[in-house]
């Protein structure tokens, strides 16, 4: 996964910052314990968010304890641990998705990236096998997603169809967090739009490179190589996805981490969009009129 789903830290209270880090570190520890030491290399912000979402939907006891960083034993950190599946499930998602992404990189990229991906794959094989054994469904959903995505991209799909496989994967994963039928539906819708948002953010991120290398990118079809117009369009598409995501999010009953998750949804998402769409292209091209491009009054 890509690390777009993050909190906007300046708006987080210190206490919530500590809690967020504790989940990240707790997930790292859980990965190492469940799937092997190397699996913590796959740790990402997105899986931390998944873990927090899972934990927030349940009342199961969850503790934050003082501990030492497993990577740097000289450093103290806070570690979140819990009864139940949240951390080991999210860890499995992390390992399995990384594994499949590496396979994708091996098929699509230039020589150096291919070689690096191949090496990493061998490195992570044992970890992947352990995760797959514990959660075979995650592996099944993920391979299905990769296949459908490759298919869609090969056939020059539109935005909706291209984003659909990733969206469906996250939807299925989120849906499994709750046994309650109504909540499952809400989680399915929420997960769908989160997956869609992540996929589209990644597509937006790769836009310039894809134009240059003539790779598939769902955003190119509308405005071709006109980056300015395409960025404006990207933002609209992302906004609409985020609006739907928020509507589903507001129906969830969260027992914990609400402040952090609220921050991610209401502050983190717009901030990431801004970073990607405004800052990067503004810095690179120094086109000040990218601001008016995002102005409603145009």
């Amino acid at each position: 996964m890509f690390g777009y789903l993050q909190p906007f830290r300046d708006e987080l209270k210190m206490k919530d910052n500590t809690l967020y880090k504790s989940v990240y570190c707790g997930l790292c520890r859980s990965l190492r314990r469940d799937y092997g030491i190397k699996s913590s290399l796959t740790l990402s912000y997105d899986c931390t968010v998944l873990a927090m979402l899972y934990l927030s939907l349940h009342d199961t006891p969850c503790n934050v304890t003082k501990g030492r960083c497993t990577v740097n034993p000289l450093k103290k950190c806070m570690l979140c641990s819990c009864d139940g599946e949240a951390l080991s499930f999210s860890g499995a998602v992390s390992v399995i998705m990384s594994w499949h992404k590496l396979k994708d990189t091996m098929n699509d990229s230039g020589f150096i990236k291919k070689a690096a991906a191949a090496v990493l794959r061998v490195f992570l094989k044992g970890n992947y096998r352990r995760a797959r054994k514990k959660y075979p469904l995650i592996d099944e959903y993920t391979s299905e997603m990769m296949e459908q995505q490759n298919d869609a991209e090969r056939n020059g799909a539109g935005i909706d169809r291209a984003a659909d496989p990733t969206a469906k994967l996250i939807s299925r994963l989120c849906e499994s967090f709750s046994p309650d039928a109504a909540e499952k539906k809400t989680l399915a819708v929420f997960g769908y739009y989160v997956g869609r948002w992540i996929y589209l953010m990644d597509a937006c991120d790769d836009l310039e490179k894809d134009i240059r290398k003539k790779n598939f990118n769902p955003f190119i079809a509308k405005h071709g190589e006109d980056i300015r117009e395409t960025m404006k369009y990207c933002n609209e598409v992302l906004n609409m996805t985020a609006a739907q995501l928020i509507m589903a999010y507001e129906l969830l009953e969260l027992h914990r981490f609400k402040a952090i998750l609220d921050n991610i949804i209401y502050n983190g998402i717009p901030m990431q969009q801004k970073k990607l769409i405004r800052d990067r292209y503004d810095k690179r091209n120094k086109h000040r009129d990218y601001y008016p491009a995002l102005d409603n009054s145009e």
Partner: peptide, 11 residues
């Protein structure tokens, strides 16, 4: 939802 009240376009 693409423009005004949506996130990402907050002026």
């Amino acid at each position: 939802q693409r423009n005004t009240a949506a996130p990402g376009n907050d002026k």
